[in-house]
Design a protein around this nucleic acid. Sequence first.
RNA 1: GUGGGUGUAGCUCAGCUGGUAGAGCUCCGGAUUGUGAUUCCGGCGGUCGUGGGUUCAAGCCCCAUCAUCCACCCCA
Length: 422
Amino acid sequence: MAKKIQSIRGMHDVLPEQTPLWQYLEQTVRDTLARYGYQEIRMPIVEVSELFSRAVGEVTDIVEKEMYAFTDRNGDRLTLRPEGTAGCVRAGIQHGLFFNQQQRLWYTGPMFRHERPQKGRYRQFQQIGVEAFGIASADIDAELITMTANLWQELGLKNVHLELNTLGDNQSRAIYRKALIDYFSQYNEQLDSDAKNRLHSNPLRILDSKNPKMREIVANAPDLYDYIDAESKAHFTELCHRLDTLGIAYSINSRLVRGLDYYSRTVFEWITTDLGAQGTVCAGGRYDGLVEQLGGRATSGIGFAMGVERLVSLLEDQADSVALNRLDAYLIMAGEEAQLAGMQLVEQLRQALPQLRILANCGGGSFKAQIKRADKSGATFALILGSNEVRDKTITIKSLRQKVAQESIAQDKVESFLSSTI
RNA sequence: GUGGGUGUAGCUCAGCUGGUAGAGCUCCGGAUUGUGAUUCCGGCGGUCGUGGGUUCAAGCCCCAUCAUCCACCCCA
């Protein structure tokens, strides 16, 4: 045998057993987005590398060590997209979607990050992203969050909770950043290696440190909320008020700092404890400076992304998974005559009943084998066509799921029989 | 990038202090010339992840490598 070729590390096939659940999830999300008036946009998977270094931030982990970047035949530096917002903003600017307009957009597709795979984290993974442009007020923040809450309800997801924070506008964030660097620099000797690395790249991350020795230093660090501008505070208060009014529960987590540079003001995460270490199922925030930063006219924006693999994994764990993609009938054909007659009959049925899901036996096999296949297919009924039936122009219908006697009916009655049961 | 666990049939796994491989399920056929979750019988199926090394002899010991799982880091 020739050498086997395997899929690339961290990039997995979604097998037929799994796809019904994926389709169910995707369809539910699609429907929900449509009900809120969001429109789909489709972007390329490959973009110039500069787009991500400018949007996501030069010193983020994503850009520094996780990008699938390569040089194409023209010598251009290209990257397999590590996230969707940058490409969406690029497309919006390129096609003039943001000029004095509001846009509510969504997209889905694979993203790529060269990380060490683990539960809920893969090198190629699927995201569903949602972005709203041109609306600066907190009502859109509330709408997006409410929409996700409704989606969890629609999907029957339990054990997800919402965490909220505000980072202030870009200016106050810059001032706070400097204050943090000044503060931590005093303790340079006591900082662990992680903290030293982050000191000038992303000092906000030091606040997150799990090292107990660092905690004492962190405890007395400047407080983010002392640096936040009045407008951002008002924005955040307004958002919380709206969520309260809508009955959406949340907790405020002042340590919640997103890993991408473009966020400002509102950030949020939906988190579950049912998935191991990678518990964030949906996360996002406001990025009011991004459009301008990428060369468009200043436009506010806010968005989030859901991790499809993580949601699928929650759905399969959470008991009430649905019976999906069920077959209505399996056609058994015994003998040469029956095979020819059966193929004609089944095509007639498919034309007459577009909803009908019927699988016709192929590849022969004994009668017994065909019955076994019919059972295994999960079909509700077996339709049996043998020489007797061909001769009498009948078909035998056997229920595979209920203990009722099989019956033989005229072939021209099958259509009405099936249409009344599916 | 760092650490730990695991790689034996399509799937789930046995395999003793080293003596060149086994079960269950699946699939195909038969017992039952046209009736499926039961029973019985038979059959298909493996360069033991890959490459080296030690040994008279390696699935087992040693080294390397790849994949996978989990965690750290980080993130959806």
